[in-house]
Nucleic acid binder design. Structure first.
Lengths: 198, 198
DNA sequence: CAGGCTATATATAACTG
DNA sequence: TCAGTTATATATAGCCT
């Protein structure tokens, strides 16, 4: 598409790579916009340069919102470690300890009341703990979803293999013999299937 | 780029639109791949046809994981609208508007600064939006996990049936005929692993 | 309806100032 | 380093099967 054909592999020259990035990014975003308008579909494009700069296109707000949310989640995940450290730095070794302290202090509030300084301090403490906790929560949920997705993928593959297997068997056997197989409810001596798929 | 120039506006003829979609989608995904390789950047593209079919490209795993997660939420777009409505209640028509307002106001802070009242107001606004948003996020994640669990259960049952089926076949057939079955490469019912959760 | 086939419109690699 | 120019490589609109 230029003076000469380029193979699709990482451009070695840093400058050329940067220039190509600017041009192609523009092109890609333009095309994304075009297809979304011409074909009336929702499109989202996210480009993150290796310097961490973000460029994006999205055809509608909800999609954008979605991707932004995702983005912030990913960011959060990366920051989890940092956040944990922050929590540690703030002087509490465990969440439980912080909670205990907080509760104690809140109880004391009824008695004599905390000073403004104490309150500010407490607020910051709680804020930090909250951030930490939220990040952890998000992390755990995402992790769980990821695992489930992987499991699902695995199961789908297994299923496919099994179906293929049945198809092979049918192919290698007279069709009429097989065609009226009992529905696969029949419980037959649970013999392990000898095929090793993975 | 074709026999004649087309203006960038929704293609009226349904068939043409569909054809253009297929072609341009392919082109867009190709370009996304190219730029990601050539320029060594992370790219994600999500295309959702108006019939709800999903097409995507992503240049790396973490991004893929994120988009897959997003994918599981595609069906929940309706719920996002609800979320936006929540934001509307708080006085802004869209989340975007809220963000814009916030950003504008924060920028102005450098110039003349907001009054304390303004800041308190803004804080409350953001707090409200944030609470709703977090609730929605948690809801979506839990929902997604639930659906994945159900899906897993279903797949396990299907797998069981298929295994039983194979067992039945083996039982009803001479074992030596089956013992050296060809590896299950045969492609059957090959449906895309796009997950429709909702 | 998906998959080729051109003629053209676009995108862009290398060049230029 | 950057924007503009130009020669080519690509993408694709309208056809056709």
């Amino acid at each position: 598409m230029g003076r000469r054909k380029v193979e699709i592999k990482r451009i070695q020259d840093k400058n050329c790579r940067q220039v190509a990035f600017c041009k192609r990014r523009k092109g890609l975003l333009k095309k994304a916009k075009e297809i979304s308008i011409l074909c009336d579909v929702d499109v989202a494009v996210v480009i993150i340069s290796n310097r961490g700069r973000l460029h994006e296109f999205s055809s509608n707000n909800s999609m954008t919102a979605m991707l932004r949310r995702y983005e912030s989640h990913v960011g959060a995940e990366k920051e989890i470690n940092a956040e944990i450290q922050v929590a540690e730095v703030s002087g509490f070794t465990t969440m439980g300890e912080l909670l205990q302290t907080t509760e104690r202090q809140l109880e004391e509030t009824n008695a004599d009341g905390l000073t403004l300084t104490d309150l500010i301090h407490l607020e910051n403490e709680l804020q930090t703990a909250l951030i930490h906790l939220r990040a952890r929560k998000t992390h755990l949920m995402l992790e769980s979803a990821k695992v489930l997705h992987e499991k699902e993928k695995l199961l789908l593959e297994e299923k496919k293999h099994l179906e293929d297997n049945i198809a092979s068997i049918k192919k290698n056997t007279k069709v009429n013999e097989m065609s009226d197989l009992p529905a696969p409810h029949m419980i037959c001596g649970q013999q392990k299937v000898t095929l090793n798929f993975f």
